[in-house]
Design a protein around this nucleic acid. Structure first.
Length: 402
DNA sequence: TCTGGGGTCCTAGGACCC
DNA sequence: TCTGGGGTCCTAGGACCC
């Protein structure tokens, strides 16, 4: 079963506003949740049904949305409350199974294998749909099927506040008739290529020779053929997994072409990334720096370290080297990002013969002390002098801590 | 006042090894 | 006498998701 909150950010903002005495329900007017245009992050994160009727699309610019929908109201996001509502939903769903995969803040997969009959499953889906609305005040779509892919496709059919099934004998009528762009994992790059091959619907894709797709798209081709045929053997991953990478990036309020300033921002980003890394009790072996220039061209450089580390100083030194190595003087930079990859649990670290343990211990103590102060008094309570000028660019979101 | 930020997975090419 | 074949690791970039 796949449970998907309808217009999650907008619905959750709406009920939070009503709770705080708002006279309007933003679900009933043309409205969107969006970023801050003055910070150059003005895109649509969620839209009301009325906004959708105007043709507003998620992820387009607020500027574009307003052109389509004059008088559109724009509200900021609030991840702290989204996390709360997401948790409430999760708690309710736990009454049906403890095998729940939290696919994102507003989507869950439920392993309902213990309900053997299709009718029972459907009734449970209807019950969840009704209870969420009555007890939590927002609506969900529920998709019921015999694997994750079909459940996800089903929950996407007609919205809002609906329960759909997609059993094997329904695939032809309910899924094969849809445009191929509707298939999960087919994005804006692949769809035009399929159109060129005269593949317009999911049914067309299902009936295409698998080998042809494999030759043209590799693994991705095999996967799309299987998905089109309703084949998916993946498990509901209900146990919380450790992250494989941790990153932080920021779009700058204006383009920057001063490397000293970029380094300050890099420093503040690294501070946050390594803090989160240590909270996970993990070490990283790969450091990656990303730049986006004013023309939206992305470049990244990464380096594998000889020893895994969580030290802010060590990771920042590498990040700065990567930045200096890739930055071409005069380039106007729009976005800077740092991420760490190839993570391992701290306990499994192997101490290198060449590591300077005394130095490492000192750095570790420093990091630990700073972490404890941030933990107690808030992320921005203390910072390194080297990124003081840039701290304002980086926000630390409380919901990341759990 | 035009285009976020957090992720995961895959691929191609080069370096290097035997 | 003008150049194999198999493999691993690393890096840069791309595609996709919400």
């Amino acid at each position: 079963m796949h449970v998907d909150v309808n217009n999650a950010f907008l619905s959750w903002t709406a009920i939070d506003m009503l709770k705080n005495g708002s006279k309007i329900d933003i679900r009933e007017i043309p409205a969107v949740i969006g970023g801050d245009e003055s910070k150059r992050s003005g895109i649509v994160l969620a839209k009301s049904m009325k906004a959708k009727e105007c043709g507003v699309k998620t992820a387009e610019t607020i500027y574009q949305a307003r052109m389509k929908c004059p008088g559109l109201r724009v509200f900021p996001s609030n991840f702290k409350i989204y996390r709360q509502y997401s948790n409430q939903l999760y708690q309710l769903l736990l009454e049906y199974t403890d095998k729940i995969e939290r696919f994102s803040i507003d989507e869950c997969f439920l392993d309902m294998t213990h309900y053997l009959m299709n009718d029972t499953l459907l009734n449970k889906g209807k019950e969840i749909n009704r209870r969420v609305k009555e007890e939590l005040g927002f609506t969900v779509n529920v998709g019921v099927a015999h694997n994750k892919l079909l459940a996800k496709m089903a929950s996407d059919f007609t919205k809002p506040d609906r329960v759909h099934t997609l059993f094997e004998n329904e695939i032809q009528n309910k899924m094969w008739t849809l445009p191929v762009s509707e298939l999960f994992m087919l994005g804006k790059r692949t769809v035009p290529k399929l159109h060129n091959m005269q593949i317009k619907t999911i049914g067309d894709l299902a009936k295409t020779n698998k080998r042809i797709l494999q030759d043209k798209f590799g693994k991705h081709g095999v996967m799309m053929w299987e998905y089109a045929n309703g084949i998916d053997n993946s498990e509901v991953k209900y146990e919380k997994e450790k992250p494989k990478g941790i990153g932080n990036s920021v779009t700058l309020p204006e383009d920057i072409s001063n490397i000293d300033k970029l380094e300050e921002i890099l420093s503040a980003l690294t501070e946050q990334v390594t803090y989160r890394l240590r909270k996970q009790n993990m070490l990283a072996r790969v450091v990656n720096v990303q730049l986006r220039n004013k023309d939206f061209v992305d470049t990244s450089h990464q380096r594998k370290l000889s020893n895994a580390t969580a030290s802010t100083k060590e990771i920042l030194e590498v990040a700065k080297e990567l930045l200096e190595q890739m930055y071409r003087k005069g380039t106007r930079i729009r976005l800077v990002g740092v991420r760490v990859d190839d993570l391992t649990d701290k306990e499994e670290m192997q101490i290198s013969l060449f590591s300077n343990e005394e130095k490492n211990e000192k750095q570790e103590k420093l990091d630990k002390t700073i972490d404890a102060l941030k933990e107690k008094y808030g992320y921005h309570f203390i910072t390194r002098a080297g990124n003081m000028g840039a701290e304002g660019y980086i926000q630390f979101r409380k919901e990341d801590e759990k």
